[in-house]
């Protein structure tokens, strides 16, 4: 799930993770919500969709932004997001909305250091 605006590094992270996962033959579902809905027709996102990424976009988020629904993704709501959360082995949520100067240093080893980072929030 990606909720930050397309200019944020989170989109690069989502694209990179999705690319790596698809390359390994993993089923990937990308749910764009909130500020990320404007990335639905981003050429990089669509390139991944052409490789098999299942692309979903929050219809409510589009409506709030007066953004037309796209034919290039599945427009849906939180029921689908819940199904994805429940039905997937791993769920990643990229949310940070602040600029790089505001962001705490993200952990590079996503195990115990992630837990430490989260505890420090």
């Amino acid at each position: 799930m990606l909720s930050s605006e397309p200019a944020h590094d989170n989109l690069d992270a989502a694209l990179g993770l999705s690319d790596a996962a698809l390359t390994r033959g993993v089923d990937v579902y990308l749910y764009l919500i909130d500020d990320a809905v404007t990335a639905v027709e981003d050429a990089r996102v669509q390139a991944l969709a052409a490789r098999g990424l299942k692309l979903f976009v929050c219809a409510y988020g589009c409506q709030k932004r007066r953004q037309p629904l796209s034919d290039l993704a599945t427009n849906c709501g939180l029921v689908v997001l819940t199904d994805i959360i429940n039905g997937t082995d791993r769920f990643l949520s990229l949310n940070w909305s602040g600029g790089p100067d505001m962001a705490p240093t993200p952990p590079l080893t996503l195990g115990s250091s992630t837990a430490r980072f989260v505890r420090a929030l």
Binding site: N10, A13, R90, F91, L92, L94, L108, L110, L121
Partner: peptide, 19 residues
């Protein structure tokens, strides 16, 4: 919450090198 959080099972080994 803030940056990147994992909801299920162990952290994806894909995530760290990409970030």
């Amino acid at each position: 919450a803030g940056v990147l959080h994992l909801l299920k099972r162990d952290a994806s080994p894909l995530a760290a090198p990409v970030i």
